[in-house]
Amino acid sequence: MIKLLIVDDEKDARDFNKSLITEFFPKIEIIGTASSALEAIKIINSNPPDILISDIEMPGGSGFDILESTQKYNYEVIFITAYNQYAVKAFRFSAIDYLLKPVDIQIFKEAIHKAIERRKLQNTDSRIEFLLQNYKKEKSEKIAINIGNSIEIITINDIIRFEADGQYTYIYIDNGKKLYAIKRIGEFEEILVSHSFFRAHSSHLINMNKINRFVKSEGGYIVMSDNSQIEVSRRRKEEFTEKLRLFSK
């Protein structure tokens, strides 16, 4: 049976999350609830859960303090936040689930289902370590990519380009490797906006560091370091040429 721990300094929030688990996931055992990071750490050390649901900001310690103190245990994490932009960015780079308050019941259920599936992969410890590293850095150097049956951690500047495929995305990397990610290209664009990536076309997100040349004829296209040719959409051409000019200074 899967064991779950709920952590939140607000009793109403703890009770609400507990009621959702009881109603929709009767086979999950709730091993306890905690009102502080310190209380949660004590519970985890004595009875490690399979899934941790935790608030981030709490008096006397945060959800990140819980992770740092119990990192040796391999459990899934779902964070709940009232939107800490810096923390959310760290979650997205690290493929860690988070829920925004007020919690949407359907999204909550989906997060639990994903946690159960990810639990089978037994690779949570690397993602938690990666999350903590990202949270402490102003700018992440790596990104965790969910490719279905595993999580790949990739150096961001090794990525040449992203190519949309409906709700999924192909990722082309320097070493010739190609990944198929379970995420829309627009989500990658949002989290890589500060890493010299540019949406040249609705189907293409490119790394400006990997451009070999820009051919202005035939409507305009970009030749990447892997010799792929990427069309620049008409409405983005002016913005691209300006970015290229600034980038090459």
Rank of each mutant, 00 (worst) to 15 (best):
L4D: 00
L5G: 07
I6W: 00
V7R: 08
D9E: 12
K11E: 13
D12N: 15
R14D: 08
F16T: 04
K18H: 00
S19G: 04
E23F: 04
P26R: 13
K27P: 02
G32A: 10
T33G: 10
T33L: 01
S35E: 15
S36K: 12
A37L: 08
P48V: 06
P49S: 10
L52S: 07
I53H: 03
S54R: 07
I56G: 01
M58Q: 11
G60C: 12
D65P: 04
Q71H: 05
Y73I: 02
Y73T: 02
V77W: 01
Y83P: 02
N84I: 06
K89E: 14
A90T: 09
Q106C: 00
Q106D: 12
A111I: 00
A111T: 02
I112F: 01
K120A: 10
L121T: 12
D125P: 00
S126P: 00
F130R: 07
L131F: 13
L131D: 07
Q133W: 00
Y135P: 00
G148N: 12
I154M: 04
I154F: 04
Q167V: 08
Y168G: 01
I173M: 08
D174M: 11
K177E: 15
K183R: 15
K183W: 11
G186Y: 14
L192F: 08
L192I: 07
L192S: 08
H195W: 01
S203R: 07
L205N: 05
M208L: 15
F214L: 12
E218D: 14
G219R: 09
G220F: 05
I222M: 02
R236H: 07
E238P: 01
F240W: 02
K249C: 00
